[in-house]
Design a protein around this nucleic acid. Sequence first.
DNA 1: GTGAAAGCGCTAACAC
DNA 2: GTGTTAGCGCTTTCAC
Lengths: 332, 332
Amino acid sequence: MKQQATLKNISKMLNLSISTVSRALKNHPDISEETKRKVLELATIMEYEPNAHAISLRTNKSNAFGLIVPVISNYFYHSFISAVEELSRKAGYSLITLQSSDDPSIELDNIKLCRLNRVAGVFVAITPFTQNIEPFLKLIASDIPVIFFDKVPDYEACNKVCVADEEAALIAAEQIVKHRKKNILAIFGNEGLSITRKRLAAFEEYFKKNNSDGAITTVFASSPAEATQFVLDHYKNKTKPDVIFSMSDEILTGVMKGVQKLKLAVPADTGIISISNDGFIPRLYDPEITYVETSGYELGRLAFKRMMDHLDGKTFVQQLILSSRLVEGGSL
Amino acid sequence: MKQQATLKNISKMLNLSISTVSRALKNHPDISEETKRKVLELATIMEYEPNAHAISLRTNKSNAFGLIVPVISNYFYHSFISAVEELSRKAGYSLITLQSSDDPSIELDNIKLCRLNRVAGVFVAITPFTQNIEPFLKLIASDIPVIFFDKVPDYEACNKVCVADEEAALIAAEQIVKHRKKNILAIFGNEGLSITRKRLAAFEEYFKKNNSDGAITTVFASSPAEATQFVLDHYKNKTKPDVIFSMSDEILTGVMKGVQKLKLAVPADTGIISISNDGFIPRLYDPEITYVETSGYELGRLAFKRMMDHLDGKTFVQQLILSSRLVEGGSL
DNA sequence: GTGAAAGCGCTAACAC
DNA sequence: GTGTTAGCGCTTTCAC
C-alpha cells in the first residue's frame, strides 16, 4: 500500500518545516512565491489530501451532518434525504444517515452517534413514539444545532420545518366544494398521529364554514389494506360517495386498489383527491389523480437553508412552514 | 455550554494519570478493582463518550462506511440503503450516504470524500456513464475495501454482489410459457444498460430453446411514458398481445397506465408479468401483478455480509449473485 | 519568510 | 498497579 501524503512527509522531502508546508498550501501571505510553488507542485504529485479526522479533532467539529429518520424507505423521507444530501455535498459536508425504525431507543443510539462523531448539525424527524426530547436539547446545549422536520415535537423552543398540513387539507376541501361534490368519503391515517389530527381539523373546519349541505363520512385507516376495505364497504351502500379524499400517498394506494376492484370509473363514478409527497403515486394511475403536494424534496431544501443560517450565526429559534400547491390530474 | 468529558479531565478530578483512566474504562486486567470502580462511576456521571475523531486519527480508520449510489430516490436503492444502514448501526458503524446524480465527476468527488473520511469500506453502485474505475482501484490499494453492487463494472478483479438478472428473466419466461401465452409484448428498459442486455439475452434464449411457436415483440422504453405508448400502440393491432412482460418496476408503472387507459381486464384481456424490486409497485394494482423479485433489501444484506467478511480478512475477490423468486399475483 | 512547539483526545510501548 | 512518553495529522502562536 502506497504511503499517505501528509504535511510531515511533504516537508521532509522539501527540507521545510511542517508549518511552512501547511501555510504554503493555505496560500498564507508570509510564504514566498517560490516556496509556495514548490510545495503546491509536490502536493499535487503526491495527491495530498488533508486528513479530515485530524481537522475534526482540532476543531471539535466535523464536516458531516447527521440525519435521523424513522425509516428511510418511506414515501416522503427519501425525497427529503435526497435533497439534503445534494446540498450538503455542494456545501462541502457529508451526510450520515441514520434510521430509528420507529424505536425511541434506537433513536437515542442515533443521537449518541451524532454526538460521538461531533457532527456539525442534526436533521431529525422523530418517531411516533418519541416522548422525551431531552437528548435533543442536550445536543443543542453541546453546540450542535438540531433542525426538526416533518415529525416534530410539540415543544416550542426549537427549530422546526414542516409542510403546511392544515393548508394542504384546506386546499383539498376547497376543490371538493368547487366541484360540487356532496357525499364525501374522507379517509385519514392513524388517528394518533398529530399529522392526522391537523389535517382532519382543517378539513372539517372548512366544511363547517363553507358547505353545510355536504355529507362527510370520516374514517381512519392505519394501513392501505384498511383503506381498500373502507372503499369496498362504502360503495356497497345505496347512497354512494361521489368523491374520496385521501390524506396521504399511503392511503391513496389502498383507495385505488378498492376503486380498481369495484371497477369504478374515475371521475365519472367517483372523484378522487389526495394529499401527496411528490406526486409519484397519484401519477401512476389513469386518469392521474388530482393532488395537493407537500414536497419532501422542497422541505429538505428549506431545512438545509435553515441549518446553514444557523451555522452562520442566526441561532434564534424559528418555525418554518412549507406551502402546499394543487396539482390537477383528471380525477375530479 | 457544558464542558466535554475527556480522559484528561476525568483523570485530573481523580488524581490519576490519563492512561490509567483509559485502561480502567477498557477493563484492563492491570487496573485494580477499586480504581476501576471509581473511574467508571465518574465517567458515567460525566457521560463520558470517547471522541470518535481522536480514535480515527490514531487508527487511520473510521467507524463509518461510505455508500455511493447514482440516486437515492430510486425503486431499488433505498431498500438497499435501508438494509445497509440497519446492519451497519448494529455493527457499530455509521453510514455516510452519497449520491452521484448519474454524474461521473460527482462520483469522483464522492470517492474522494470517502478517502478523506478514511471510511472503513465503500459500497458503490456506479453511474451508467462511469468509464474509468481507476479511482475505485486506488481506494482498494489504500486499504479501503470496495464492494460493488447492482450496477457493477465489467472489470473482473473486484468484489461484486448482484441480483440474478438472467435468472429473473428466465423465471418470467418460464411462467409465460407455462400459462401458454403465445403473443408476447416484452418491454425492456434503456438498451444501453448492461442490466437490459442481460435480461434480454436470457429471456430470448429461453424462448429459443423452449417455445418456438410463441411470437415475441421486443421493445425498449427509456421512460414509463414510452412504455405506456408501446402498450397503446400494440393493442390497436388486429393481433393483440396476450401477455406483457415488463423488465422493471419503472416500466411496469408505464405499462399499467396504458392498461388502465385501454380499460383492459387483467388477466382476461391480457396477462402481465414483471420483474420488481420489493413488489411494492406490483402490489399497487388489482389484481396484484405476478412478479419476479430481485430484492434490494436482500442485496443490501448480502453486500454487508461480504464487507464484514472482507474486514475479517477474507479479502479474496468474490462475485455473489442473489437469487430471484417468483411471487404470484393474479395477473397471469 | 521560516521554524519550533504546543495541543486537540486517545492508545500503547515502556518504565518502575 | 500506575505513570511517563510518544505519536496519529493538523493548525496556530510565538520566536527569530
